[in-house]
Amino acid sequence: MPPMPLLRARRVASLVAPVLLVLGVMSAIDASAAPSTGATSTVIVSAGADAAGRFAGTARLPGCSGGVVRWPGALDTDRAVVITNGHCVRSPFLGAREVLVDQRRWTRIELLDASGEVARTVRGVRLVYASMFRTDLAVLSLRETYAELAGSGVEPLTLAGGGPSRGDRIRIPSGYWTEQRACATRGTAYRLHERSWDWWRSIRLPARDGCAIRGGYSGSPIVSRETGLVVGIANTGYVGGRRCVDSACEEDRRGRVRMVRHMNYGQQTSWVLGCLDGGRTFDLGTPGCRLAKPRG
């Protein structure tokens, strides 16, 4: 299969750069089938508070990165949640309109402390949600509670109520690689297309201005450097090749399509908050929930 931009990575002698930033390592997938990761520059940020706790809340999944998040109304006794990309949870990738909900899983996940050391190895026991339509998102429920994670030094992240604006300073810590990129966003793309997938309001992450993410960054949280809140997750990047096939392409409100050189992308996470019943329970039936729902 021709290379795609998903940023999932394969930890072998050399890196494969598929378009979908299955920025993680899709061990069971030919990396050429993952979304592209763009440039492989190794610029790593280490400034101020970012350096002191840059990896707090990050996670390492098979072939991908992720983040431990805590819903606004969650209790210490609630099972903890990890978010990553939808393209990180299955081989082959999900279909263009496919949505998975409430499936049993047994996923090994390493949770990192603020310095990037493995604080605890856990199991994702339930796939709460996964889709690559409108967004590229998966929500995994762990068997461990927030209280249990806190006892191991794991600090969950918090989702922002909205996406970033053009020029906002962000950082992207990868739990898979234990490295970080940082840049100022270039706003959002109205629609983003890659092969048959269609994503809405994707966050632009300029590779040449510090966000040169690579395979293995898929699912990495995009964190505001002003607020410390998660505004998105990285998912795909520029690798050249065919427009909308080997690299993602943007479509504006007038239907004009273009492929932007050296531009990587992430998906917004604020939509998740609109699908929480009482701020605590993920429920696609919550009034105002904008995430894609299963057909039928």
Rank of each mutant, 00 (worst) to 15 (best):
M4W: 12
D78W: 06
A207R: 06
A59V: 05
A51G: 08
L149K: 06
A28V: 03
I172C: 06
N264K: 09
G228E: 07
P92K: 14
F93A: 13
S174Y: 03
S115R: 15
R123A: 06
W197G: 00
E250M: 09
A28E: 11
G266V: 02
T178P: 00
R186L: 10
A31W: 08
A39Y: 10
Y238D: 12
D50M: 03
T178Y: 08
L276C: 01
R134N: 09
I203V: 13
I172F: 11
M26P: 07
K293E: 03
V89D: 03
G285K: 12
S174A: 09
T269H: 03
G175T: 02
P2C: 03
V231R: 02
T121S: 15
G73V: 07
D136A: 06
S270N: 14
S270W: 15
T135F: 05
T281C: 03
T185C: 06
D198H: 15
P206K: 11
Q267G: 13
L20W: 12
W177K: 04
I172E: 07
S196H: 14
A138K: 04
G124K: 03
R104G: 11
R186N: 13
V154E: 01
V154W: 02
Q267M: 14
L75R: 15
A184Y: 08
V82Q: 04
E194R: 08
D113W: 14
L157T: 01
R253T: 12
R195G: 13
G151H: 14
L140M: 10
V19C: 13
W271P: 00
R191K: 12
A182V: 04
G216Q: 09
P2K: 10
R171A: 12
E148P: 02
G151T: 12
V257R: 15
L94W: 05
L205S: 05
I109T: 00
A150T: 11
G279A: 08
W106L: 13
R290A: 10
D246K: 05
R191I: 03
A292C: 05
R70P: 00
D78K: 10
V223I: 15
T286E: 10
L159T: 02
G255L: 08
G151P: 06
L159W: 04
A56S: 07
L15Y: 14
A74C: 06
M259A: 13
F55R: 00
V68R: 00
W197L: 06
I29V: 10
P92N: 12
A74W: 04
I170V: 15
G288T: 10
G215S: 07
L140Y: 02
S220T: 05
W199P: 00
T188F: 03
G38E: 01
Y146D: 01
C211F: 11
G153I: 04
G219M: 07
A130K: 04
D246P: 00
R204W: 04
M26T: 09
L284Q: 09
S131D: 03
I83W: 03
R143Q: 13
R11V: 11
G38Q: 04
